Simulated assay, not measured.
Amino acid sequence: MTRISGRIVTPDAVVRGHLDLDGELIAAIVPDDAAGDDVIVPGFVDLHCHGGGGHTFTTGSAEAARAAAAFHLRHGTTTMLASLVSSPFELMRSAVLAYQPLVAEGVLAGIHFEGPYLSEVRCGAQNPAYLRDPSMSEIKDLIKIGEGAVRMMTVAPELPDALDAIAYLAGHGVLAAIGHTDATYDQTHAGVAAGATVATHLFNGMRPPHHREPGPVVGLLSSAIVCELIADNIHLHPGMLAFAARSAGPGRSVLVTDAMDATGMPDGRYELGGQEVVVADRVARLAHNGSIAGSTLTMDVALRNAVAAGLPLVDAVAMASTTPARLLGLGDRLGALVAGLRADLVVLSPDLTPTSVLRGGEAL
């Protein structure tokens, strides 16, 4: 039996006491007012990450994917999707075949395709050369060869055949996400009605709200959809982060990194989806037009930024762990500090800096 003491962040409260672990599972939470000031949170669950530590998910390299996952694990992310950007179908297919064994092994929780079925008007840092309308034959093939590894796909709902694609994804166990979209409010709600359940990095890569045409942002916030929020204080002002999180609530908000391979690396020149990216003072931008190109964020920093923006610690932890775990269908196994769940946890100092990470009860 392993015992870890401090302020334990449960789904309902912060409990000062001891967290008892029995092998890979949480055995019990024992209150004790004399326990220390460390903050114990569940392992983070990142639904949207393109890489980190100098390694990328976007090229379909299993070796790079394993190294990127290991980098983020050291920052407390115990469960993650490998996100690709818009790519030729051949690369999408080869990435599924390369990453499927990593999913089976538990290194990755699945694959997220952010594109290529996106709006050219709102493509952001997505390579416009690879954008195209949804292809049912491509989608069906990816899901088939993935054997459960494909877990999420971002689609712009206003594109031809997009609603059919969303319905097919939802009907085959794949999270359909709405993002990089110029959709109207009504087109957004049509996407939700077709089966979409996620908003890819709310606000970013979307038509801005207007009081006479609310567009996708208000359409998504006013639905039952779960909204990704990039809490790097660059993609979203802290006030906007807090506003969106309070509007949707912690059960419909998730913190994501949208990190690229430059995360944890020096400033300099990098590549994303065939386009050159310049990173300066932690901000990644396309070299040719200055568009923000992913982030250099880790989930521990996202949690600190969310709390600094005024969100309660319990809510911020739900957004970083519990809500995304539930969205992936893993809520009965992980994502919260509850007896019987897997002992994925991060021990933080009082200022919320990680001091240790455990996955399945094993310390890194």
Rank of each mutant, 00 (worst) to 15 (best):
V85G: 02
V278Q: 06
H50Q: 13
T78L: 06
Y168V: 03
G251Q: 14
P214G: 15
A287Q: 13
M206A: 03
S87F: 04
M240E: 06
I8E: 00
P209E: 11
L337I: 15
L102G: 07
V107Q: 03
Y130C: 04
V277G: 01
E228I: 11
T296H: 04
Q275V: 04
Y270L: 03
M153E: 06
L328N: 08
F113K: 03
M206Y: 01
A248T: 01
S291F: 11
F243I: 11
R359E: 01
V9D: 04
M136A: 15
A64T: 01
L102E: 06
G115C: 05
R207E: 00
V217Y: 03
V279M: 04
T298E: 06
A69M: 02
C123K: 15
A64L: 07
A231E: 06
A68Q: 00
T56V: 05
A343E: 04
V314Q: 10
S119D: 11
L330I: 10
A316M: 07
G76W: 00
K144D: 14
R246H: 13
A129R: 15
P350D: 12
L175P: 00
A65S: 14
Y99E: 09
D315T: 10
L236P: 01
Y185L: 11
M265A: 08
L303P: 04
R333N: 00
G219M: 02
D33M: 12
A34D: 14
N127Q: 11
E158C: 14
R285Q: 15
P31T: 14
A306P: 09
V30A: 12
H112Q: 07
A284Y: 03
R3L: 13
T78H: 05
G179K: 00
L47D: 02
Y270E: 02
P350E: 12
L21W: 08
L47W: 10
D182H: 10
E158P: 14
M299P: 10
G251C: 06
G310N: 13
D315G: 12
G76M: 03
H55Q: 10
T263L: 09
D232W: 01
A320R: 02
V301E: 11
E120Q: 15
E24D: 15
N127E: 05
L108I: 13
V217N: 03
L131P: 11
V256M: 05
S356D: 07
P216N: 04
L297R: 00
G6D: 06
A280Y: 05
I8N: 02
